[in-house]
Simulated assay, not measured.
Amino acid sequence: MSDREELAGFLLRCRERLCPAEVGLPDGVRRRTAGLRREEVARLAGMSVDYYARLEQNRGPHPSPRLLAALARALRLEQDDRDHLFHLAGHVPPGRSSGGDEHVSPAILLILDRLHDVPAQVMSDSGDVLAQNAMAVALLGPNVGRNVVVRWFTEPASRLRFRAADADGMSRAYVADLRATLVGRPDDPGPAAVVARLRAGSAEFAALWDADAEAAGGEGTGRRGMGETVRHPEIGEITVRRQVLVAVEAGQRVIVHTAPAGSRAAGQLALLRVVGAQTMSA
C-alpha cells in the first residue's frame, strides 16, 4: 500500500540534499533554495516537470516501477533508499540477486557525469541500458530503459546508426554476449526471457542462436574492445572503440566509446560534445 504523503516528503528531502555538481549540472545562478530544482530532477528522470511536481505535492498519480527506478537514478539514491522509495509508492523493490538488480550506484553515476568528453553507458549483461551520460545520448540516442539487443533484432530502425557492412558482425557479437550471460547465470529468469523473446520474434537471432557455438562466438568475447562506426545524422560516420571499462555489481558493465588522441574521430567527438550540449539546451 502506498503512502503518498511520505513519498512526497521523501522526494523533497532527496532533491534538497543534492547539489548540481553531484549530478553533472552547472551550479548556475539565482538558486534561492538548496538542492536541485524540480525541473532538473524531472529532466534527469526523463519525465514531465508537471508529473514530478504533482508527486512532490502529494497529488500525483501512482508511479510505475520504471518511473521509480528513473527517479532513484536521478536522485542518486543508494540501494536502501531506493528500496524505501519503492515501498512508499506501494511496490516491491527489485531483487538484489545476482544479475537481477538494475539499480546503478551513485558512485558509478558520478563517474558517468565526470566523463565529459567520451560517450559512456552502464548496461546489464543482457543488453539493458541502465544509465548513460550526455555524450552517449548525443552519439547513440536516449536509450535508458531499452534493451539494445532486442531493439537490434526486432526494430530495423535501430540499425540506421550503423553501417550495413557491420551488421552481421554486430549481430553475431550480440548473440555471443547473450549466450555467455545465459551460461553464466542459467537460473536467472532475466536473460532467459530475453533469449525466448528474441527466438520468437527474430528469425535472424534464432538462426544464429541455433548455430554452432564456436561459429556464433560462444566464448562470450562479444563486442568488448571492438571498433564501431556510428552514423551520426549531423556529424557523419564516427569510428570509435567500444571498451568495457570496468564491471560493477552483478551483471553490470560500464562501457565507454573512445578515439585515439589527435585522430579524426577524436575531433568528431569534440564536435559531438558541442552539438549534444546545444541539443540539450534546446
Results as ranks from 00 to 15, higher is better:
residue 13 R to L: 11
residue 13 R to H: 07
residue 14 C to E: 08
residue 15 R to C: 01
residue 16 E to W: 02
residue 21 A to P: 13
residue 31 R to S: 00
residue 37 R to P: 09
residue 39 E to H: 12
residue 42 A to Q: 14
residue 43 R to G: 13
residue 61 P to H: 09
residue 62 H to T: 14
residue 66 R to Y: 14
residue 71 L to W: 01
residue 73 R to D: 01
residue 74 A to N: 09
residue 75 L to V: 02
residue 77 L to F: 08
residue 79 Q to K: 14
residue 83 D to Y: 10
residue 84 H to S: 04
residue 86 F to Q: 02
residue 87 H to V: 15
residue 96 R to F: 14
residue 98 S to W: 15
residue 107 A to W: 07
residue 114 R to T: 08
residue 119 P to R: 03
residue 119 P to G: 05
residue 125 D to G: 12
residue 129 V to I: 02
residue 130 L to C: 07
residue 136 A to C: 08
residue 138 A to S: 07
residue 139 L to P: 04
residue 150 V to I: 01
residue 151 R to H: 15
residue 152 W to C: 05
residue 152 W to D: 11
residue 153 F to V: 01
residue 154 T to E: 00
residue 161 R to S: 02
residue 163 R to W: 09
residue 170 M to C: 10
residue 178 L to D: 09
residue 179 R to N: 07
residue 181 T to G: 06
residue 182 L to N: 10
residue 184 G to H: 13
residue 187 D to C: 10
residue 188 D to P: 04
residue 199 R to S: 15
residue 200 A to K: 06
residue 202 S to M: 10
residue 203 A to H: 12
residue 204 E to Y: 13
residue 209 W to T: 06
residue 218 G to S: 08
residue 229 T to A: 01
residue 230 V to I: 09
residue 231 R to Y: 14
residue 232 H to V: 06
residue 236 G to E: 13
residue 236 G to A: 12
residue 236 G to T: 12
residue 244 V to I: 05
residue 251 G to R: 04
residue 257 H to I: 05
residue 257 H to Y: 15
residue 265 A to C: 04
residue 273 R to P: 04
residue 275 V to L: 10
residue 281 S to P: 12
